[in-house]
């Protein structure tokens, strides 16, 4: 092969490596730019938000006036607490109840177990929102409107089908010998369940992360079941606050930043596990 030919090939080869990076970087900019724009402008004064929206805040333009308004006017601490309670409680009950059901459905074959598996799987594809009229009537009857419990119940019911489906796959992989040995030792079925649970911990973690985000971000059910100021979640609280302060740009940008940052930090913290769990599921 001549030298010129080799160089040409090299250039071609490098082009083949650069173009994908260029495409990915372009898309990355598209994905990140709107978020960054809000973040940097939330730390600037009003004049600079409008005059130089693309520049970083400096000593002259730096301002926290937006954050001051938000802390003065909105009950963000309460909204944050409400969202945390709802999300954590829903998560805990979904995992506990879902794991027990998934274990029973894979471990014991009884009359109707196949039917029950299919019955529980309906909710994977049919969105619970379509039953909103019925859910609201039910919550009114139980006196649960404007109570966080109504949200927790809905989110548990909503996430059970997928949780049971995924966990069933994992329980099937638990070696039979382990359970038979425990039974020979006289362990009760509950003790065996307790023995098996740690073995599916990665799956529990993955389900936890994936159910958490939609619950935290949901607007529909807080809006319908718990719209009161005392029970407003962060998503609903931000939505209502932003609606009132549309013209106060500092406040709007600051509240958006405050709503974004915690979830982004959480995401960066867990993103590796998240992807790993999806990839593991796909390979299996």
């Amino acid at each position: 092969m001549s030298k010129a030919n080799r160089t040409l090939k090299k250039i071609k080869h490098q082009g083949g490596r650069i173009v994908p990076h260029l495409i990915l970087i372009t898309y990355m900019v598209i994905a990140l730019f709107p978020i960054l724009l809000i973040l940097i402008n939330s730390f600037k004064n009003r004049a600079s938000i409008f005059n130089s929206p693309f520049s970083l805040p400096n000593a002259e333009t730096f301002s926290l006036v937006g954050f001051e308004t938000v802390f003065g006017r909105a009950d963000f601490e309460r909204y944050f607490l409400n969202s945390s309670i709802v999300t954590l409680a829903s998560l805990l009950f979904t995992l506990l109840i879902g794991a027990a059901a998934a274990y029973a459905l894979t471990e014991y074959k009884f009359k109707g177990s196949t039917f029950l598996s299919i019955y529980m799987a309906i909710g994977i594809m049919i969105p619970i929102r379509l039953g909103t009229v019925g859910i609201l009537q039910l919550m009114v009857r139980f006196g649960l409107v404007n109570q966080l419990l109504s949200l927790i119940l809905v989110y548990v019911a909503m996430n059970l089908p997928m949780t049971i489906f995924i966990l069933s796959n994992f329980f099937q992989q638990v070696p039979v010998e382990l359970k038979s040995a425990a039974r020979l030792d006289g362990a009760s079925e509950y003790q065996i369940f307790g023995l098996v649970i740690p073995l599916v911990r990665p799956a529990l973690g993955a389900i936890g992360i994936f159910t958490m985000i939609p619950i935290w971000n949901d607007l529909w059910f807080p809006l319908i079941l718990a719209p009161g100021t005392k029970t407003a979640t962060i998503t609903l609280g931000v939505q209502q606050f932003l609606g009132q302060f549309v013209s106060d740009w500092n406040a709007v940008l600051a509240s958006l930043t405050m709503a974004m940052v915690p979830i982004l930090i959480l995401y960066l913290f867990f993103s590796k596990q998240m992807v790993r769990s999806i990839t593991a599921g796909a390979i299996k």
């Binding site: 029950l116 529980m120 859910i135 809905v154 019911a157 909503m158 059970l160 009760s188």
Partner: peptide, 25 residues
Amino acid sequence: FYIVVFLAPAVIIYTIIMIYPLLAS
């Protein structure tokens, strides 16, 4: 009996909060 204990919470919550309202709607 333990099968009932394992399954009842999931089946009851799912039926009351999801399936019944869907059918009622």
